[in-house]
Every structure is written in structure tokens, then in C-alpha cells.
Amino acid sequence: MGSPGLTLVPAIFTIDPRSGVPIYLQLIEQVKRSVAVGALEAGEQLPTVKQLALDLTINPNTVARAYRDLERDEVIETAPGRGSFVRANGTSANARKTMEGVTLDALGTAIRDAKSMGLQRQELTQLMNAALDRWFPKEER
């Protein structure tokens, strides 16, 4: 068959439906991350619920749920009939908060894994410092 049903997925959103992480949470994280790193700018329009659901081949209500939560978290705003947009007001503050949230989640996962492998708090602190030294050379400390 031809491929009118297949569209190019926007590069900033990729989800793994087979993951145990709910799809709407994956989407929320990705939108927040995109805002935080500037891939999505203030005032930029997001795809409609239907369009994103079709692009990613996921249930539309899953996308709608992610958008609702993003509105609640003041990352995006939806104007009825016009679509959803990255919030203009306080975007940098939100992005900062978002970056902290994304980082904290990643650190939490790493720490949980390290703990499950039997590392003690002190060892972990040393490892964290070593990692920090690598990414933030001495003069930045």
C-alpha cells in the first residue's frame, strides 16, 4: 500500500509504548525537557491532540491527559479553538523548575539503582563528586 497513513514523527517527541512508564508521563517529560532546553519556545504551538495522537500512533485521550497535566503545571496553555501553546509568561522560571524536576528524576533513578546494587551513601557521594568534577572542571566549583 502507499503510506498516507504514515507521517513523519516530530523529532522532539518519541515515546516507547512498550515501556512500563505510562505514555502520558513520557510525553509530559519530553515536552518539559523540550521547553527547558529551548527546543520548544515561548508561544510556540504544539500539535493538536488528534495530530500528535496520529503522529505517535497513540490513544488521543492519552495525549489529552498529558496536555491537561502540562496546563496544570503551567508549562502550556490552551486557547479554545486555537490550540495549545508553550506559555509565554514566566517560561524561563518554569523551564528552570522543569529542568530541576527532570534532573531530580534522573538522579533519583540513578541513586535508586546504585542503592539496589548495594552502594552506601558515602561511596555514592564520592561518585557524585567525581562525576561533578568531570562535568564542572575545578574553576567552576
Binding site: 500500500m1 503510506s3 497513513g5 504514515l6 491532540v49 488528534k50 495522537a53 496520529l54 500512533t57 497513540i58 490513544n59 488521543p60 485521550n61
Partner: peptide
């Protein structure tokens, strides 16, 4: 697989409507 994906999109499209 291509047509399977097309069917899923039809289902999603209908649900969105």
C-alpha cells in the same frame, strides 16, 4: 506491519472524532 499501523491510525482517528 505497514497496514497494521494504518489500522491503528484509523482507530485513533475515529476515536479523536
Amino acid at each position: 506491519p505497514l497496514n497494521q499501523r494504518a489500522v491503528l491510525k484509523l482507530i485513533i482517528d475515529a476515536a479523536a472524532d
